[in-house]
Structures are given as structure tokens and as C-alpha cells.
Design a protein around this nucleic acid. Sequence first.
DNA 1: GATGAAACAAAGCCGGA
DNA 2: TCCGGCTTTGTTTCATC
Lengths: 144, 144
Amino acid sequence: MDRVDWHILEELQADARLSFNELSRRVRLSPPAVAERVRRLQDSGVLTGYHAAVDLERVGRPVRAVVVMDCYGPTCLLRDPDVATWPEVRQLYRVTGQGCSVLMVAVPTMPAFEELIDRLARYGRPSSSMVLADLLPWKPVEPA
Amino acid sequence: MDRVDWHILEELQADARLSFNELSRRVRLSPPAVAERVRRLQDSGVLTGYHAAVDLERVGRPVRAVVVMDCYGPTCLLRDPDVATWPEVRQLYRVTGQGCSVLMVAVPTMPAFEELIDRLARYGRPSSSMVLADLLPWKPVEPA
DNA sequence: GATGAAACAAAGCCGGA
DNA sequence: TCCGGCTTTGTTTCATC
């Protein structure tokens, strides 16, 4: 993880479809050298994938919310692996504190949200905040 | 946004570096036809970008937290556009409810987290939950 | 560098208003 | 007939050895 690796990560985070040729120009290395570095970053688990970003509002999921789940014991949401596969659930974290988990969800309409909350309420007490604005739809990871 | 468009979105969300050739094979269309559809999805704002995914733990940011900010009036965090540029801040939402905003943050160490909380406390009352596990590091958006 | 594959641009084909 | 979307072809650029 030297300076060039970070330069490569920076470029691929901004545009994952860059050709090795273009990438090699930007980081001032030969194309095979860049390809080899990218391969190493992949194999070492630093680069975990390349994903197209989709605008949730434009694909029918304009209603978003942060949901904190307060659950305990055998019905805890974290014991049901299916929840992570629900299409409404975009992120799912186990956290410390009062709630046991935090979900980011995206649904087409408020009625759909109401239905989702009902489904979540089977596991514990959900407390939700509607997202009014996403101030940071994307940003690259920087060197620590 | 027909069935083929969704098939394209599905493939590009899973692997943004797919060539148009390979993509055209998977969706059973000619390469130029696929390229044209992708161009339209980009121009219409459905596809907002292609981003390499980086493992935060492996690049020196193993400590993550959800921070709910409770602030009000002229010192509210949402009035300072610089906050979104802090490298620790990975996501930033304006939300309804008690807190005015929710942040996802990632830092190298607990002392760095302590320092970040101090910086955030200038804007209002931060209340944070440490992330114990990310149960859903990535998943594609599905048709609503 | 050299080879095979992929991207891009231009022109023609086909089905539905 | 017109129009939008698809395929085919030829040329340039790219990936890989």
C-alpha cells in the first residue's frame, strides 16, 4: 500500500470502468505494472468489488429511512439471516448502545414503509427517522 | 426501464468492469445495443457512477460508528458544508425526528474517534453507536 | 512489440405507430 | 411511411503474453 496503490484506489473509486491503459497514464506506470498492482489489491482483499451506482429515487425507491431496532433475546432481528435479503434493506449493522442494530431502508411509497415497519416490529421495537436529504451520495475512501 | 434495462443494471451493480461484449452476451443483445442502453441509463441519471469498493478495515479505518446529531439553530452541522468533506465521514443524511442528521463515520482508532466526537460536539449533541458488524457490505438494488 | 479481443462509428434492417 | 431500436461491418484501441 504505497502512494501509487492509493492513487490507483482513488482513480478506481471515482471510475471503476477505467481501462488499464487510461489508469496507467494517470498513475504514470506501464499498463502491465498497473494490472499487476490491481490484481494484488484484489487478491489481498483491499479491493472487494466494482459496483455501478444506481439512483434510488429514479428506480422507484424514493422513500428512505434510518431504522434503529431495539430487540433482545431469541426474536432479535440479528438472528434472522433472511432480513438482510429483503430488497428494502440497503444496509444492516450490529451496533452498541440501546438499539441492537441499525438499518438503512429504501421503499417505493409511505404505505410500503408502513408495511415494512410492521414486519420489523415482529423482532423488536423499531424507531425510524425518514431521510430528508442524502448530503453525501458518494465519496472515495482516503488514506488514513 | 424494461426487463433488459434491469438485467443490465443487475449485472453492472455486481461487476461494474464487465466489458460491453460480455454484458451483451449475458443480456442477449448485440454489443452496440447494450452500449446504447447503458448510455441512456447514464444520461437519464439512473446510473450515477461506477465505483471500486474498498475494505475499510484493510485500509486503516477499522473503527466505525453511527452518529446521530442533535443540533439546532445557527450552529447546526447541516449548515457547515465542510463536514461532508471530512475524510472520516462516509455518509451524511438529514433526517426527521429528534436528531437533525445521521452520520456514518470510519476512523483508524478509538482515540481518533474520540477526537472526531469532540469536533462534532461543537455543532450540537452527538450520540453514537459503534458498529460491531457490517451484515450487508454490499447488495444490488432490485426492481421496486 | 505482437496477437487476439474489445470498443466505437457508420450504415443498413426490421417491427410498430 | 416514419421512427426507434437492433444488427452487421470496418477501424481503432486495449489487454495480455
